[in-house]
Design a protein around this nucleic acid. Structure first.
Lengths: 208, 208
DNA sequence: ACATCTATGTTAGAGATACTAACATTCCTT
DNA sequence: AAGGAATGTTAGTATCTCTAACATAGATGT
């Protein structure tokens, strides 16, 4: 179907609504987002979207899912560009996380606010959680390369995730310049990650 | 003015609106919050609040400020209950942060989402940022006690803040049980903080 | 091919909301 | 005590979410 031809049936309204919503949210934030706006942008009546989404929240949920999908895809990509088992691979995932969250700040609310919490209850958990398992695999590869098999990889991955997430949230919130005008968040995250890993490895070696 | 007497003028509508909004948000989240609901709860017409708040966002902003104020007050309290210069004081601030964010989850959106970012632009920055400086002071006391004067306290405080914030955000989001059913977030934060500090101190000692 | 069923649009409309304008009452200053 | 400033009220506009009833087009079975 050509874009110029106007048919009674849109053809792919579900996806068109998700795209329109994502665009609108990127332009004006998630707070003032309206279903009607997105419908207009998709070129349909304001009632049409309700054939595809139970309510406004369901659409926002779908947008949040898209956010998680994009995050895990990009994580995989940047990780694969680094040497397997290197700490650089872990740091690359973290830097990508910061970059993703800060450049798509409007999605952050959806992914981590009220909507985001519900987004993880749904059946499509696997796709949304994929990014975390990219990190887990990368951490596992690192400790394998370090010949430290007794480390709890899951536990450590969550800690690394928390650190990176914290830097991302702080960077995105815009609060940091008030405290530290010249702060380079990715560099701080990298330094903190290296300090943390150094401490973890020291603890491991000491426990023998 | 007794609570039972109904006067034409409310007397303290500005604060009553903030309280009503905070209650409603705690009950039903910030997404579906309406100015009209809060006005009804405060016992005034739906137009009255506009004498005190330019728009809905201004009210939510005020609620977010209240959240920051409560956080910094409780941080000071728990810090003062620990020995000065101890790492326990730092960890106590972190545990309080996690507890505060997770028990007042509805405020999180306001403090860290779209609204929260704007809340820091305002003139009342000092009050909202007070919590961070409680942490900075505590970190400074710790390194003084450790006789490590060359540490960048501000830099380190931001890193600790990021870590704790990350654990809080993850705990609050409800996503963690999907990955690690038995996760004890405060304990993980404490362990991560100790690992991190160990790494930092090792780096300091090595640099001589 | 053809009829029919189902999916997916449309218009109309109810109910609620954000916010404004015009008016009313009370407080506060002089 | 008078009058202006502050802070309420009612009424109203524009908009939004979501539903109901109806229209059209694709898909399916014979």
């Amino acid at each position: 179907m050509s874009a110029a031809v106007k048919t009674y049936h849109h053809g792919d309204l579900r996806n068109a609504m998700i795209v329109a919503a994502a665009e609108l949210i990127e332009e004006s934030g998630s707070l003032g987002f309206s279903m009607a706006d997105a419908a207009r942008r998709a070129g349909v009546s304001t009632a049409a979207p309700y054939r595809h989404f139970r309510d406004k929240e369901a659409l926002l949920d779908a947008v949040a899912q898209l956010g998680f999908f994009g995050l895990s895809e990009s994580a995989r990509r940047v990780r694969d560009a680094e040497a397997e088992g290197s700490i650089e691979a872990i740091i690359a995932i973290g830097k990508n996380y910061i970059s993703y969250v800060t450049t798509k700040a409007a999605f952050y609310d959806l992914m981590w606010g009220d909507i985001g919490a519900r987004a993880f209850e749904a059946e499509s958990f696997d796709r949304k959680a994929a990014g975390f398992y990219v990190l887990v695999d990368t951490v596992r590869a690192y400790f394998k390369a370090q010949a430290l098999s007794q480390v709890n990889v899951l536990d450590l991955s969550i800690k690394l995730w928390a650190m990176v997430h914290g830097f991302s949230a702080i960077a995105m919130s815009g609060k940091l310049p008030h405290f530290h005008p010249d702060a380079d968040v990715p560099a701080m995250m990298e330094a903190a990650t290296r300090s943390f890993m150094r401490g973890v490895i020291a603890e491991q070696r000491n426990s023998h």
